[in-house]
Amino acid sequence: MNLDFSQIVPYIPFILEGIGATLKFVSVSILAGFILGTILAIFKITGFWPLKAIADVYTSIFRGTPLILQLMIIYLAIPQLTGYDISAFLSAVLAFGLNSAAYVSEIIRAGIMAVDKGQTEAAKALGVPYRSMMLNIILPQAFKNILPALMNEFITLTKESALVSTIGYLDLMRRAQIAGADLYRNFEPLFFAGVIYWVMVTILTLAGRYVERRMRQSD
């Protein structure tokens, strides 16, 4: 077997810088996706049909087409259509944020629907206004139920983030590829990047379990 990890040593700082690049756009995307997803979820459960229609069409489009296509359209087609030279970072945040919002909205909607109808009735019977009921009674219970599904979505997003290497964004994946091309050896840098992805996802998983445990104190 032809393996020599010592050769990637000079490239390690270069590849490690990719962690920051990846985390930067992943965290912004998760946050954007979560906020937009919550808003879309509330649109979906309102009785007002135009809002529901907007949210449903949105979800259908972003779930029904490949993420890499959405990324390419934003990165390559926006300059063509508008003349605005969009950066790789902004393209990545837009594509991943908008895409994630579609999935997150479905998760949150399901979480709200799964809260016992009796909770709404109890709140109504006490004269609690809709806003307080949602904020204090329904959403806390919904989020607790969907935390595993949300963590799953965040983990998926972290791993799929490697797609941005295709638009030249210097993330972890792209840097491993560049190192591989320079060295004419691909296994070592790719393996190294793989370990880093695994560590990031594991940290995310553990953080999720910790939050879950904290929230289960009332069980």
Binding site: D116, G118, Q119, A122, A125, L126, V128, P129, K144
Partner: peptide, 28 residues
């Protein structure tokens, strides 16, 4: 002005007994 008690209680599960009782007087 009308209190209601349900067959299946419908207490708020993420609040303690005292918080359940305190919630409406504060919020409403």
């Amino acid at each position: 002005n009308i209190g209601m008690v349900f067959q299946h209680f419908h207490l708020f599960p993420h609040m303690t007994a005292l918080e359940n009782v305190m919630y409406a007087p504060q919020k409403v």
